[in-house]
């Protein structure tokens, strides 16, 4: 793939110097900080609420580190994935529309390198961002509660990362097919919603990527989790999306 290294370098610098740096890492950081803090403050707030209101009382069980981790994974599965879908709808199509892709691809940069470089750079953001966010979440949780099942958090987040990278590959494909970033984002939201629906059924949650977020939650709770099937499906779907995106982009006029 001619030109992958310099293009990847450009993409990483673009991430560091533009709005891209703020969106996904921002959501990851927000989830990492807010989850343990909210879990920690909730009983206190409700206690004060009860004290202020005679005859009104809500008693919650004492929050634990595990609840903090579950809240964190919940935020990753909802808020952060949604941000990812919205932010990366124009990952390829945006450059084509703005004309920057034309000037770049008139140079000896392979079309495959362009597509893979786009995915790889943002995959790196997801991986590094998720690692740092998880570390922050674990440290804050330890500070506010106790260490809890911290060892189970890493594999659970790894499953989330695999799911996010697959979703990113889907967005790359949608962005190659649909020139308008808004259309690609819309189709991405549709895909995300379809996966949520599939996750509701036992069969589909075991053999499609849809089951991976729930598997992550099960892993962190120490429950038996059916994660192998969904993980394999996630890798296959992600790889297939990238291959199709490359093949389609090769034939596309810029």
């Amino acid at each position: 793939m001619t030109g992958l290294a310099p293009f990847l370098h450009k993409e990483m610098r673009e991430t560091l110097r533009t709005w891209r740096l703020w969106v996904l890492p921002g959501f990851l950081l927000f989830s990492a900080v807010s989850s343990p803090v909210v879990m920690y403050l909730t009983p206190t707030l409700l206690d004060r609420l009860g004290a202020a209101q005679q005859g009104f009382s809500i008693t919650l069980p004492e929050p634990t580190a595990l609840q903090s981790y579950i809240e964190y994974l919940g935020n990753l599965n909802e808020l952060t994935l949604f941000a990812l879908v919205i932010a990366y709808g124009g990952i390829v199509g945006g450059e084509v529309r703005s004309g920057t892709a034309g000037l770049t691809l008139s140079k000896p940069l392979a079309r495959a390198a362009f597509v893979i470089g786009k995915w790889l750079s943002q995959a790196l953001v997801v991986v590094v961002g998720a690692a740092l966010a998880t570390l922050i979440c674990a440290l804050l949780t330890r500070l506010l509660f106790d260490a809890g099942p911290a060892a189970r958090l890493a594999p659970a987040v790894s499953l989330w990362v695999a799911y996010a990278l697959m979703l990113l590959a889907v967005l790359v494909l949608l962005s190659v097919e649909l020139r308008a970033p808004a259309a690609a984002s819309g189709a991405g939201v549709g895909t995300y919603a379809a996966l949520l629906v599939l996750a509701q059924f036992d069969v589909t949650s075991r053999v499609t990527p849809a089951g991976l977020p729930a598997a992550g939650l099960a892993v962190v709770q120490g429950e038996s989790a059916h994660w192998v099937g969904p993980l394999i499906a996630t890798v296959v779907v992600g790889a297939a999306c990238l291959v199709v995106a490359v093949l389609r982009f090769r034939r596309r006029e810029i």
């Binding site: 709005w19 703020w22 959501f27 927000f30 941000a83 124009g90 970033p181 808004a182 984002s185």
Partner: peptide
């Protein structure tokens, strides 16, 4: 507008309240 398109930002602002507008 960063990225050159308004619609994703509009969705972000409306759906992710407080966080979206701040970003």
């Amino acid at each position: 507008v960063s990225g050159g398109h308004k619609v994703p930002w509009l969705i972000l602002c409306v759906l992710l309240q407080i966080v979206g507008p701040v970003i």
